[in-house]
Design a binder for these strands. Structure first.
Lengths: 233, 233
DNA sequence: ATTGGTCAAGTGGTCCGACCAATTGTGCGA
DNA sequence: TCGCACAATTGGTCGGACCACTTGACCAAT
């Protein structure tokens, strides 16, 4: 029964999605002003109330900023993140220190309890980091995946959640400027070496060594941050 | 210049907040149907389009569920949480285990670095738990505050964030049924005793004892859960 | 030339009334 | 008793109207 008619989503949702696509496609840059409601209605072939409903939905979602008498503007992504969920004021060094604790334990638990499939997933994620760092590719996504796989292998989804929460803090103010600097090939090579120590310890089922390797990795990351931090000042 | 006129919020926002209050006040229980849009408009003295805008805002926020031709229903809190951000499937026992790790470290750091003001805050939060558990008052809020104050005293806002994230998991499916049972006076007395051990260790600046006391508290909580879990089955 | 105020165009805010479409309950008929 | 059709209810969409606020241009006084 693949013929099921498309669920008739409500009009305001379709319009909202359409506008949302235009924004993410770069048609309207952050801070830019959208056409007036009346023009949008005409362009999209719908009534103004429907456009208004869509705009309100996007406003609630934090994508748009409506200013009376002036116009409708695309919310700056930086501002948007502040609205979205828990954004503690945790600085990079606090996050690193907390990650050392949590991810260290994740690594130890992974060494103790990871299933063969999870070990494969860790190995695969590690390989991807190696591959991408060789090609000068931004390894941030792969790096996150590597740490996530280890957390998952701990078999405690609460730890996974905590780790993800901390990782998302990277979007904070100071963080981004630091991250940019750490894409140098030399830094990447160090990271890979430390990752290998972690993988090795987990593979040979040595919880203490895994915890130690992860904590060492965090300490070294901390040092790299310090280095860039002082250099940047 | 305290004369700044109140920023005139838009009508749909006011209406949405008003409806939101009615819901959280229990006027409309989860799953209940709201009055028709037309009636709401008349009751609130506004037009139907404005009511619709408010309803769409609340729908986007996940508070309402609109069914064409049928009516507007209050979203079940269980469903709502699924939509809202990170809601891992972390069960109570996983959360407890993760909290033992994180809050244990928080307690140790608090013993090491808490300021006098923070120590006072911990003491005060503890007193409140004692007071409310004596009066058969639901001590959940006070209990959270107690643990939060200790986390704050760790001087690491990343740990505070992680702890809050885990604590919010309590709203999960299994959790609630367990929580209800644990309000018995006897349970409360045990909790207070364990809390006192934690406070005592932090006050005498003994990190190892503080970590141990916190972990023991978590272990005991774990045992209480187990007891209710097996009894309930 | 600069400053200040006025005013008009543009834009979102709100409202009304109407009609359409989906749902749901009811009552009639087989 | 069962099943179907009808009608009331309810949300969905529309067009138009008027109001309030913002903005920028224009003009007058300095």
């Amino acid at each position: 029964m693949p013929l099921q008619t498309v669920e008739p989503r409500r009009l305001y949702r379709k319009i909202a999605d359409q506008i949302s696509v235009l924004i993410s496609a770069g048609e309207y840059a952050p801070g830019a002003r959208l056409p007036p409601e009346r023009d949008l209605a005409k362009q999209l072939g719908v009534s103004r109330p429907s456009v208004r409903e869509a705009l309100i939905a996007l406003e609630v979602e934090g994508l748009l900023d409506v200013r009376v008498g002036s116009g409708i503007y695309v919310t700056d992504p930086a501002k948007r993140r502040q609205r979205n969920a828990l954004q503690g004021d945790a600085g990079p060094f606090e996050v690193i220190s907390a990650r050392a604790l949590i991810e260290g334990e994740c690594a130890a638990l992974a060494a103790k309890a990871a299933s063969p499939a999870q070990l494969d997933a860790i190995r695969e994620a590690h390989d991807r980091v190696v591959r991408e760092s060789r090609h000068d590719h931004n390894p941030l996504v792969a790096d996150r995946l590597f740490h996530l796989r280890i957390a998952e292998a701990s078999c405690n989804s609460a730890l996974v959640l905590a780790m993800q929460t901390l990782w998302d803090q990277r979007m904070g103010p100071l963080y981004r400027s630091l991250e940019r600097k750490l894409e140098h090939p030399k830094m990447a090579a160090e990271t890979v070496r430390e990752h290998e120590a972690i993988v090795s310890a987990i593979m040979r089922r040595d919880p203490r060594a895994a915890r130690g390797a992860m904590r060492r990795h965090m300490t070294q990351t901390h040092n790299r941050y310090i280095k860039e931090w002082t250099a940047g000042k």
